[in-house]
Structures are given as C-alpha cells and as structure tokens.
Computed example of a mutant assay.
Amino acid sequence: MSQAHEEEVLARIGKGLVYTESEAAFQAPQRRTEQIFEYNHTPPGETEKLRSLLVAIFGSVGERTVLLPPFHAGFGSKVHIGDDFFGNVNLTFVDDVDIRIGNGVMIAPSVTLTTTGHPVHPSRRVDYGRFSEPIVIEDKVWIGSNVVVLPGVRIGYGSVIGAGSVVSRHIPPMSVAVGTPCRVLRPITDDDLTTRTV
C-alpha cells in the first residue's frame, strides 16, 4: 500500500468514516499483542517487569498505575493513561483510535471502552467494515462494573458512571450518570462529602 493511500485511510478514520480491515492492515505493527499476553501471565510480585510492560504496551502511561490482569486491547499503543490510575480485572480497550484517560481515574471490573462500531447494513460490514471515534475520560472519573463506553464519548471531570451502564453520549463534569442508555441522574455536590452512596 502506498503512503498516499495510507494517509487517505487515516484521514477517513480521523473523520469517523467507514473503513475496512484490509485498508487498515498497515497499522498492524502498532499492536502490542505479545506484550499484553506477557503482562497477563506475569506473577504479581514482579512489579518492575509489570511496569516496564505497561510502558511498552501503552502510548503513554503515568505514575502509580495499577492495572489488574487480565486486560485486553486491540492495539494498546493507542491508549494513553494519566497518573494514579486503577483498572480492575477484565478491562477491555478497543483502541482502533485513541483512548485518553486522565489522572485519578478508577475503573471497576469488566468494563469495555470501545472506540469502534460497525455500520447497520450488513453489506457495509464486509471485510469488517467499521468506524472509529476517540474516547476521552477526564480526571477523577469513576466507572462502575460492567460499563460499556461507546465511540466518541467524553466523560467529564469527577463524574461517576453507575454499574451496567451503556454510555453513548457525553457526560458532563461532576455528574452521577446511570442506565442504558446512560443518562445524568444528578450533579455531584458538597452534600456527597458526607454520604456513602449516590
């Protein structure tokens, strides 16, 4: 594939337009499949090795990162994580384009962050036709168990996403949001400094 063709495909991907597996195959060297496998099979006491693998896997990774294995990623290299991140088991990154996670983010078990969806009509899904849009999770967000975050979503500073939610639209800062589809339930206020639950 020529460089001009690769640039044309990347431009389409950047606009959220449909592209195919064959068209995007030139990105395969960015996949960190072997390193992800190694991370998921490294004993928990080997902290230096685990840290070096995270640095090798992700596009960028902050300090004091905790990511409990197993985790899964399409690429890994398109994930960017800030400081003081906690990711629980079975976190899945479908990172065909960037996933950007801020500082102080907590993610519960079995969460999926997917930048990619597929066209509704089956003829447009030939050769795994798909579209991709970046996900942004701002600082201090807490995402509950079994949440799915869909392409193009931004979750604002300090927000909480309730367990089992499907997040298909932007969530404003300092909000409690729940449901399928995920909707803002209420703002987070100083009253929450003295309560345990939502």
Rank of each mutant, 00 (worst) to 15 (best):
D127V: 15
T47W: 03
V136I: 15
G14E: 12
P173L: 05
T42M: 02
V97Q: 00
R31W: 05
G62N: 05
P187D: 05
F71G: 00
H41W: 04
E7V: 12
F26Q: 03
A28Q: 11
A73L: 07
I81V: 15
V18W: 01
V105F: 00
I13M: 05
E48K: 04
P70G: 11
F37S: 12
H118P: 12
C182Y: 09
I101T: 07
I135W: 02
E133C: 10
L193D: 14
V147I: 11
K15C: 12
I57V: 07
G76Q: 02
I171A: 04
E7N: 15
V167P: 01
K78P: 03
R124W: 10
L53F: 01
L50E: 01
A4K: 15
R154N: 06
R31Y: 05
V184K: 01
I155G: 00
G179Q: 12
C182R: 02
I155C: 04
V166Y: 06
D192H: 15
G102E: 02
P173N: 09
D192Q: 13
S22E: 14
I101Q: 01
D95K: 10
I188T: 09
S52N: 14
G14W: 08
K78H: 15
V149Q: 01
V136Q: 05
D95T: 14
N90W: 08
S52Y: 04
R51D: 14
I36A: 00
S22M: 06
Y19F: 14
F37N: 12
D127I: 15
T195Y: 11
D192F: 10
A73M: 08
R130C: 14
G117V: 06
T114M: 03
R51Y: 13
T20P: 03
M174Q: 12
S145H: 06
Q27K: 03
A25Y: 07
S123L: 08
G104T: 13
V141S: 02
L10F: 05
P29Q: 06
V166D: 06
F75Y: 10
T92I: 07
L113I: 15
F93W: 08
H80A: 02
A56P: 06
G144V: 15
L91K: 02
A108Y: 06
H170W: 12
G74P: 02
S110V: 10
L50Y: 04
